[in-house]
């Protein structure tokens, strides 16, 4: 009985009906079945944060969730947040601050940063560092990322840096 299981869910607002093997995790489902390769795979054991996506509004590690568990769920990926414009300002801040180099951590980092900003409009640098502390970036040293998130928070509050 390791046969495929039927799942229905929405991904970035689009209805998806699929047959998935139970062992398939959400990251691989998004990447290999739906072609949404913006959700990256870095460690596959829940430590690096590269596969961070939103399920029913909460950020989760897509490698630590089975695709079958997302039956009836709403999944949002970096492609969806980009197309809707939800993180356009955050992306602009990352660009202006060169808060990405190789870009591999960036989708997950943006997901985590947006999650923080939705919960806390005025995070200080320590809070930003803490909220992003499960997302590994080998390139930047984090400083520029913290700057970009801080600048976005300020701008969303209508304040000048």
């Amino acid at each position: 009985m390791t046969a495929p299981v039927a799942v229905s869910l929405t991904v970035n607002g689009e209805r998806i009906d699929a047959q998935v093997l139970p062992r398939l995790n959400l990251a691989d489902f998004l990447r290999e079945h739906l072609g949404l390769t913006g959700t990256h795979v870095g460690c596959e054991h829940g430590v690096c944060g590269a596969c961070t996506v939103r399920v029913d509004g909460d950020i989760v590690r897509a490698c630590l969730l089975l695709a079958v568990q997302t039956h009836n769920a709403s999944v949002e990926t970096i492609e969806g947040l980009s197309d809707s414009g939800e993180v356009a300002d955050l992306q602009a801040a990352f660009c202006n601050r060169n808060a990405l180099q190789c870009g591999y951590c960036t989708p997950g980092m943006l997901m985590a940063a947006q999650d923080l900003l939705r919960q806390n409009a005025a995070p200080d640098r320590a809070q930003i560092r803490e909220h992003l502390s499960g997302n590994y970036c080998r390139c930047t040293g984090y400083h520029a990322i913290i700057d970009a998130v801080e600048a976005t928070a300020l701008a969303r509050r209508g304040e000048q840096p």
């Binding site: 959700t39 970096i78 492609e79 980009s82 992306q91 660009c95 060169n98 190789c102 870009g103 591999y104």
Partner: peptide, 19 residues
């Protein structure tokens, strides 16, 4: 000056070999 082509990476539309 901002690096060209960052949008691609920030939108999850890069093309890494693993993709």
């Amino acid at each position: 000056v901002p690096r060209p082509n960052l949008d691609r990476l920030m939108q999850g539309r890069g093309l890494y070999v693993s993709d």
